[in-house]
Structure formats: C-alpha cells, structure tokens
C-alpha cells in the first residue's frame, strides 16, 4: 500500500487533534463542542491505526475499535444531555450552565 513515512501519518493525527481542541475551546454551541470532541477522538484513532501499520500488527486496529465503541457510547449520552440542556435553559449556549462556579 502506501509507503509514507510514519511521522507524516502521526503529524496528520496531530493536526486533526489540534483542530478539534481549538474547536472545543472556541465554540459556544454545545453541539459543536460535541462535534469537535468527535474530531479529537477520530484523530487519536488515526494515530493508533498508523502505529499499528508501522508495526504491521492488528493491535492498532483493535484500539481503534475500542475508541470507536467508546465514541459511540459517549455521543449517545452526550446528545441526551444536550436535549436536557435545551429543555432546561431553552438555549444551546454551553455557558448558560455555569451554576457550578466560585
């Protein structure tokens, strides 16, 4: 298949991760925040697959499998929470739920 240097693959994962982190820090809409979290998870999965490809073993893919499962579970619960947030505060502003301050 491809014969790209390993660091390029990992750098791609890094770039995607950084973009996801940036999105989490900036976006105020909670749905976008969740989307950016998915981006980060996907990036870390990419890193694992690249590592598995580097060694030629199945372990990288197994890790990606687990990350995927976890991401699915997290999205379910996260979206349920979003629905609750919307119902209670009538907004999707993540800063609206700031009672746990001070």
């Amino acid at each position: 298949m491809v014969t790209v240097p390993v660091e390029h693959g990992l750098m791609l994962a890094g770039v995607l991760f950084a973009l996801g982190a940036l999105g989490v820090m900036v976006r105020r809409n909670v749905v976008f925040t969740l989307m950016c979290v998915e981006i980060m998870l996907n990036a870390s999965g990419l890193a694992f697959v690249v590592a598995g490809w580097r060694w030629g073993q199945a372990d990288g893919q197994v890790m990606f499998f687990f990350i995927l499962t976890m991401a699915a579970a997290e999205v379910c619960v996260g979206l349920a929470l979003v629905l609750q947030l919307h119902r209670r505060f009538q907004t999707l502003d993540v800063d609206a739920a700031d009672k746990m301050r001070g």
């Binding site: 660091e7 990992l10 982190a21 940036l22 820090m25 030629g56």
Partner: peptide, 24 residues
C-alpha cells in the same frame, strides 16, 4: 494554545528517528 500544542507534537515526532513502517 492549539498551535503550541501542535508545534510540540511535531517537534517530538521529528526528533525521533523513525524506522520504515512494516506496512502490509
């Protein structure tokens, strides 16, 4: 912040000498 994070990661990756991937 994100840029610094990325820069660190890139630095770490380029410092180490990576062998050729096993591929396949």
């Amino acid at each position: 912040l994100a840029f610094i994070l990325l820069a660190e990661v890139v630095y770490v990756l380029t410092c180490v000498g990576w062998p050729a991937p096993a591929g396949g």
